[in-house]
Design a protein around this nucleic acid. Structure first.
Lengths: 122, 122
DNA sequence: GCATAATCTGCCCATATAGGCATATGATCG
DNA sequence: CGATCATATGCCTATATGGGCAGATTATGC
């Protein structure tokens, strides 16, 4: 099997830096394809393709405006990712080290529940 | 060009569901390869390969323990992702709709800065 | 309808993947 | 050292990618 399709979910879609760049630009409001392409210094077809992927996973929405197609942010799709990574927040938080130590101690000496430092008094 | 390597950064590394599964399991503590493989119902080589990717992007660390190799979480690498997605939090937050409307109004009628509702008092 | 602007899609290529499987490498113990 | 458990790697295949570029689409205005 090959790698999962970029369109399989938001995780795969935002793995591509250019697509993240697009999303960032769209935070300021709707943008036409050529406009985005210009800002990101990529070709129009390239931009269109990335936008297609983003659209397929629901991270952007399109709206016809005359000859142009305005793409807008549909950021809800990023929420699951934010939440998933959030599930690890404690691990990069300094205070967790202490909490971890506390839990470990608790597991070994339940009665030291209120002991913050040192001695095991049971 | 092909898709960016899975080892190019954490974004690409966690695009693979199995790798996310591995990280989740490691939240409970270090685990040996076969142990992980068993829990995730994947083959040992498969698991080893995913672990290699995770290790190359710094999301896990290894430690030899006898014949075994214990893999542990190194979640700091997820932080950038959490923060990046966090930059879009306002867009999936209900209250943002009102904030957005407020900003729009502000842009059109600067003097309504303190007006929360309706009338333009300048 | 025709010319033109703005996008999209198709095709080709080089590259990398994840899975399956066999085998190499490592470490422990007698 | 040899046997064995625990992992890591190598090789092969099917699949999908992103970039480049030309041509197809769609919409607008005359």
């Amino acid at each position: 099997m090959a790698r999962a399709a970029t369109t399989s979910d938001a995780f795969n879609a935002i793995a591509e830096p250019r697509r993240r760049d697009i999303l960032v630009l769209l935070r300021d409001g709707e943008r036409a394809v050529a406009d985005l392409a210009d800002d990101l210094e990529m070709t129009q077809p390239q931009t269109s393709k990335h936008l297609r992927v983003l659209r397929e996973v629901g991270l952007v929405r399109v709206r016809g405006a005359g000859k142009q197609r305005l793409y807008g942010l549909e950021a809800e799709g990023l929420r699951p990712i934010h939440e998933w990574t959030g599930g690890f927040e404690q691990f990069w938080n300094d205070s967790f080290d202490r909490l971890d130590a506390y839990v470990q101690r608790l597991a070994q000496h339940p009665s030291t529940r209120n002991t913050d430092e040192g001695d095991t008094d049971d």
